[in-house]
Design a protein around this nucleic acid. Structure first.
Lengths: 338, 338
DNA sequence: GCTGGCACTCGGACGGACAGAGTGCCAGGC
DNA sequence: GCCTGGCACTCTGTCCGTCCGAGTGCCAGC
């Protein structure tokens, strides 16, 4: 176990390195933090920390920089989550309150998060399967063409075109709409398949084909949760990354374009509480020099989706975590209200 | 007027520079293109081209690179649009055909365009005002709460929540829905305000407030064309930009994040035909070292929105223009079918 | 009007010298 | 036993001078 002072040294190293982006040496450390000991002592502590793998030297006569393991210890033991100040909280709330629809909520959230953290923000749209159905609407666009519109309690709307095997009268359509809604409205999406299973049986034979088609489209829409959407922003902040720029930034931009990768990234994060993945802890190779801070958000107690930021491992963890947590909280509130 | 050969020299300079990303000298030019004259002659031509402002020297003893004016001449006079090959065309069509809804069409288009051109792709969602109404749906979510869903012929769906001043019965709602649709379905959005003007008059006094509220929400939705959406992709291609990277890329990423800037950019482009804005021709400062190739697309003859790519002025114009034109054409077809 | 030749210029690469920062280690002091 | 000051060492980044090559402009000749 590391002594208290060594932990303090590690904390100081992380803080300084995050601030200056340059390897930090023993002398600078003692000057900027009053540790009460001399540089030589700090050097001994640093040697110990290096042995344990918490810090490393880029080259022999340089200062130390934290390793992924060092950041991990810092996040777990040495740093808290920095709460937002009251004015910041007000600003967040005001900014989000102006949103007109779900797209707007998500867009504003991304913007806000990117600005607060000065990093890349990622916000997942509220997922379908974890939401409940508010309403299913069926519109007849042509005799054998129906538009299916699905509205969730989080305000998300999905629509699909359905080509019916046979013409479908207005009356049958109204009938189907009514029966469908009475069964699924207010229910969780996950339960929908079970609830509509025997629905076609109540219809005339000639309409059953259409009913089945409509239902299977509905179920498909639900299953297509893999087609979950997300929005990203603040990519310009990547330019603050480091000096060896093009090499680092390229894979990150590529990862950000791959929604699949991002969704997986968020998906892997724990379901409740905040998750911090540091450097190589990220499965995706391109993100090996980045950290991902993510958290679930939702209208009630349950998370319906996740949001987070992607930034260099060399990031201000307490501040970032504070911002992410605060934003998630307020987005949840907004969704609950709408 | 420049002689034919000088134009050829300019063309050769542009082509070589685009390929190698390095200033091109007289000797290299004569070796790679058989112009039928010696380097010395080419030097004279280059001096003339430089006097006219078509090319420039980074420093005294370097080769020449094209100026914005040089690219402009190249695009206008010297280069055609390179058509896509048959396999490429097939690939485009196949890729776009798999789309399930409008979001998907746009997403696939962005991807495709970014891949084909290896640059940043920007696709605007079909605009509301230039589309026609397919259907307006009203859903009662609570006694005094209505959801308004607007469906366009391009498959775009907008929804808004309406808080009614007074409870609104199912019957009244159905009535309003029917009257509303009979007036606006199939009409152009621009005409809607005029068409619904006197609608409230046909309703009972106690319902008029609600009807007015619903209508004004509808009109607001239409007016919010400024809130036009767009999707971008291929930002990872920015890393291929140049060597002085962080300086160039930063403002570009910032511009790409500002939807307002992008929309303006696309908006300024001519309404029909392809538009190429080169370097300083772009009003927005951050894009001074980029070129924007854009074109309108639509389901019929009329453009409902625009798409394009943003890349370094040093880009393959004929290829890029060919890809942009081809993609726009196929997207138009897809929209017309759906 | 084109061409070969020639002198000139400038940037980029190479290499040595140097300063500065930081380290590891050791002997001495509390 | 732990901390400290001192010292030798190592490495990087920078500065400077040199050199090479690419490219130019100009000129005289065909």
């Amino acid at each position: 176990m590391l002594s208290e002072r060594r932990l303090q040294v590690l904390r100081a190293i992380v803080q300084d390195y995050v601030g200056t982006e340059e390897p930090v040496g023993s002398k600078a450390l003692t000057e900027r933090h009053n540790l009460g000991v001399s540089p030589a002592t700090v050097r001994n502590d640093m040697a110990a920390l290096e042995d344990e793998g918490f810090i490393a030297q880029p080259h022999t006569s340089a200062g130390r920089i934290p390793t992924d393991k060092g950041y991990r210890l810092f996040v777990d033991k040495l740093a808290g989550v920095k709460p937002m100040t009251a004015p910041e909280r007000r600003a967040i709330q005001n900014f989000l309150d102006g949103a007109v629809d779900l797209d707007d909520v998500v867009a504003r959230t991304v913007r806000l998060l990117a600005q607060l953290t000065r990093q890349v923000a990622v916000v997942q749209y509220p997922s379908l399967t974890r939401s409940t159905v508010r309403h299913v609407e069926l519109l007849s666009l042509a005799p054998a063409r129906v538009m299916l519109v699905l509205i969730t309690d989080t305000g998300r709307v999905e629509q699909r075109m359905v080509d019916c095997p046979a013409p479908f009268g207005e009356a049958s359509l109204a009938d189907l709409r009514a029966r469908l809604n009475s069964r699924v409205a207010g229910r969780r999406f996950a339960d929908v398949p079970r609830l509509v299973e025997d629905l076609p049986e109540g219809f005339d034979v000639e309409d059953r084909g259409t009913v089945t088609t409509v239902l299977s489209t509905l179920l498909e829409t639900l299953v297509e949760e893999n087609e979950e959407r997300l929005m990203i922003g603040g990519t310009a902040n990547l330019t603050r990354f480091g000096h060896d720029f093009p090499l680092t930034i390229r894979p990150v931009l590529e990862a950000l374009e791959e929604q699949v990768v991002l969704l997986k990234l968020l998906g892997e994060a724990g379901d409740s509480g905040m998750t911090v993945r540091i450097g190589h802890e990220n499965a995706y190779e391109g993100l090996n020099s980045t950290s991902v801070v993510s958290v679930g958000y939702g209208s009630g107690n349950e998370a319906v989706a996740k949001l987070g930021v992607v930034g260099p491992t060399r990031m201000d963890y307490p501040g970032t975590m504070g911002a992410v947590r605060a934003v998630a909280r307020y987005v949840g509130q907004i969704l609950a209200e709408s």
